[in-house]
Design a protein around this nucleic acid. Sequence first.
DNA 1: ATCGGTGGTCCACGATGTGGACCATTGCGA
DNA 2: TCGCAATGGTCCACATCGTGGACCACCGAT
Lengths: 308, 308
Amino acid sequence: MMAGVSANADAQRPAAPPPDHGRAARRSASWTIAHTADEADRPSGSQSIQRALVLLNLVGVLARDRPEGVTLAELTRVSGRPKASVRRVLVALVAEGYVEQDPDTACYRLGLQAGVLGELAGHRDDDLGEASTDSLIRVADTSTDTTFLTVRHGSYGVCTRRQEGPGPIRNYALAVGDRHPLGIGAGSLAILSALSDEDIDDVLASTATTRGHYPGFDDETLRDLVHRSRQDGYALNDGRVIAGSWALGVAVHDAADRPVAALSVAGIAERFDPPRRDELAALLHTEARSIHAALTRSQESRPVRGRP
Amino acid sequence: MMAGVSANADAQRPAAPPPDHGRAARRSASWTIAHTADEADRPSGSQSIQRALVLLNLVGVLARDRPEGVTLAELTRVSGRPKASVRRVLVALVAEGYVEQDPDTACYRLGLQAGVLGELAGHRDDDLGEASTDSLIRVADTSTDTTFLTVRHGSYGVCTRRQEGPGPIRNYALAVGDRHPLGIGAGSLAILSALSDEDIDDVLASTATTRGHYPGFDDETLRDLVHRSRQDGYALNDGRVIAGSWALGVAVHDAADRPVAALSVAGIAERFDPPRRDELAALLHTEARSIHAALTRSQESRPVRGRP
DNA sequence: ATCGGTGGTCCACGATGTGGACCATTGCGA
DNA sequence: TCGCAATGGTCCACATCGTGGACCACCGAT
């Protein structure tokens, strides 16, 4: 599930955010082959777990910029599930320490275990994270705009890093943890455009019903956008997600040359006139190549994978 | 259901992170009042979620120093649950992106969402984490031993940070993410000893069955250890958890003077002769006070909590 | 070929999670 | 002061969902 298309929590989203999920096997990716798509073919025997994990993520995203936490009412509204259900799950999450509840305000937020999990996840060989931090900072500094790293995850793109530029203009269209179908947003579109045509077919099919909640992103439009992005050499989001908020993205390829992520820069529409687009695209391409090189290097120096 | 806990993953830790859980209300703590205790009185209607979250944590802990991941067999062994069950849960975790599976080796490890969750959790006002990093480094450097931060969580202590000292001796008794009942381990014991007598009663009752898997930590012994710790002014683990691995811990109090964490230093037995104990205790007390001061400061400068 | 070890699948059974209805408080506006 | 509409929280009959033993395919070492 995902957080609001519109970054702020209270959701002026069109319809109640979809509780839908499912599964989509992508044999093209290594590690992490599958990811939720639409509720149709979800793995059986795990409804409650699915819901719990979605809710956990939701708590994290909604409480991100709100130290006081999220109210139960809000969670029920956004998740679109009955209150009693949401609460039952929350109690379980609290009992395990993944979520905390303020005893005074009864608000919920991520708990200790969530941090621990992140700590544990951080120790994994996060080559991409390592390799991209420098680039992110460089791009943010020289572009003076907010820069993002979007990672491909199945048929979706997840914003995993966000670097504010030195400029005064803040952008709230995308935040760490946000997940959108591939093709929605500049970075996400850059990844999609870098896929093979048949992969694109799969992705579009897999995200069809989810995209129902993103007005103006039907298959036709997305294919057009992909076409344009390929021609231009960069993906441009001309305010389609949030009016006035533009962004430009370029795909990042891993050691095996698969498009696994994207760098993108966001800002107000005025900052994306054609000449500056080329400038930004060049900058992003340079950094994307740099990350690719770093990934290739660290791949070579790694012991062969496979049964020990 | 039950608690397998034969434990050693293949680490030489005595007991793997206990899979058993439950609930224990502590009105003394703010935020995160409850935490899993024993499977007895768990919140109803959340068995599968409970198990899923425990398994998630287990994947993280077991795969910590193993980039290739954990095998299904190992997870079933350690968790003590039927294979089919474990797999079903894993599939759900993978589908949501919290766990990844290597398509070649079929091994599991933490996934992208776990990292995202950590990122989101990191943005919360982690005063303690902030305030303790400097102290951890100082202690590790001057003691030349491995230093830990253990955070109280209900009736348990969670190791949330670990700082290697410059010395060559490595310690594998405790790692980030490990969770043990309060009283087991130096830091954990320091926290327990700082609690009120009635709180100690509650904790001991709550962790009784879990402690069944830790030989030599019955109520009687723990009360003795608490007594000794209070007299000495520090908690000493004289190789009770792992033979030859000693540790010394001191509690850290938050702005409201509640013992919420502990600093501890671990090393081989030889490094804990009485004179050095006093040295270490003094060092840790200084740093503990420093953290307490920092917490008090940041508490004052915080807007009043409560409904906005 | 046999055996012990993987990971993965199936499906009848009943424990488990579900969620509509309900209650207690609170804050706001009349 | 009294509703009234929010909030968070609880209950419990019903049936959906999770359970887990049994089973299969595969692999490598006897």
